[in-house]
Design a protein around this nucleic acid. Structure first.
Lengths: 205, 205
DNA sequence: TTCTCATATGAACAGTGCGTTCATATTCTA
DNA sequence: TAGAATATGAACGCACTGTTCATATGAGAA
């Protein structure tokens, strides 16, 4: 907001180890980056702007993060709630509906829709973002889903020859398809029909 | 390749209407943009570089396209083959397998994987790309798929209460899910199982 | 045929952001 | 107390965007 008092050129300003230690600077930077990501989107998340908002030096950001994309990904994960455990009440259909509803709710009502879309989008060209997304989000979540399905399969609630990866792709892929490709996000009210289709199929009988 | 003879500064070079008319320049620009997109990816597709490769002026590109993203999208559509008609042999399952196999083949074996991923990625932040993608690709293709499914539904090959949009989301969304989110693209050999899951479901009986 | 208009062109400028280097000052650790 | 770690501001070079400008030339109209 106000002009920095040390902007005057020619006058010797004081560099030196910041008033704050590394951990504090990192926290401030991640907080500022998370704010920027939610408020103005991924495009606005530049080292320049984050540094200004966090009251840190741009040089410092270059030291701790390889690129603005990597910083954005870390800021997002730091802010997103921990991955929900998959419920196992014994009722597979109900558990899937619960889990997918939570996912859609998280996208639509908790502000994650734009960050998720932008981060997945950036991952298509930014290797830093791709790795962070893959390791910290996509793979772990897929693994949890598959585990829950495997349990159900052992209990005879799924066909023995069902391909669990494909089931995961159909359920979550349908949501991402609307979010990313069609850009008409999934409505939570559709979740039960989605699960029904995955379990019963679209063919008669 | 070779240095332009008119690079010498200070010496009056000759601007003026290019040696080529508008249609020719547009074609050259689209061709150069398509080459760049396939060869070096979306990141490399800047007005500056395309202008140089097409032997055109950067000013001209600004006149005809609002942004590099919009140019990339148009260049891609100009190069991609026309949308395949949905076959209707009366055998829904076989027709879906045919169509999805063509889609996967187009991604994996015809070099479309990277451009598609990068364009969908860019669409998450670039409104120009989002509009072009939505209007010229996603929506028309979805409509074609839904039409084929509606025919099948009328013939009793799908449940009367099946949600055709959801079926489309499950089939193509599964492919996009691997391409964009998991980044482990779909293999064509999985297509029959995917279609089987969509029609029969994963539950027993 | 002649004239007028559309338009491709090169040059220049400001703005933004990245990536890096440098000297300096401060805090933490041993 | 000495030295290592590190945050800081400044500066430079680079790439790309977005814009303006004068100029030359081809194409269509009168």
């Amino acid at each position: 907001m106000s002009e920095n008092a040390a902007v005057r050129p020619g006058r010797p300003v004081r560099p030196g180890r910041g008033r704050r230690p590394a951990t504090e600077v990192r926290a401030a930077v991640l907080a500022a980056a998370g704010d920027l990501l939610l408020r103005d989107g991924l495009q606005a998340l530049t080292f320049e702007r984050v540094a200004k908002e966090a009251g840190a030096s741009r040089t410092t950001l270059h030291k701790w993060w390889p690129s603005p994309g990597a910083l954005a990904a870390e800021a997002y994960f730091a802010r997103s709630r921990p991955v929900l455990d998959f419920p196992d009440t014994g009722d597979l259909r109900a558990d899937l509906v619960t889990q997918l509803r939570a996912f859609v709710h998280w996208l639509k009502d908790e502000g994650a829709e734009r960050p998720v879309a932008e981060l997945v989008g950036a991952a298509q060209t930014d290797p830093d973002v791709a790795r962070a997304w893959s390791e910290n989000y996509a793979r772990p979540r897929r693994e949890l889903a598959r585990e829950r399905l495997r349990t159900a399969q052992r209990q005879g609630l799924l066909r023995a020859d069902a391909d669990l990866d494909i089931v995961v792709d159909q359920l979550w892929g349908a949501c991402y398809h609307r979010l990313l490709v069609l850009r008409t996000p999934f409505d939570a009210s559709l979740v039960p029909r989605l699960v029904d289709h995955a379990l019963r199929g679209a063919a008669p009988r």
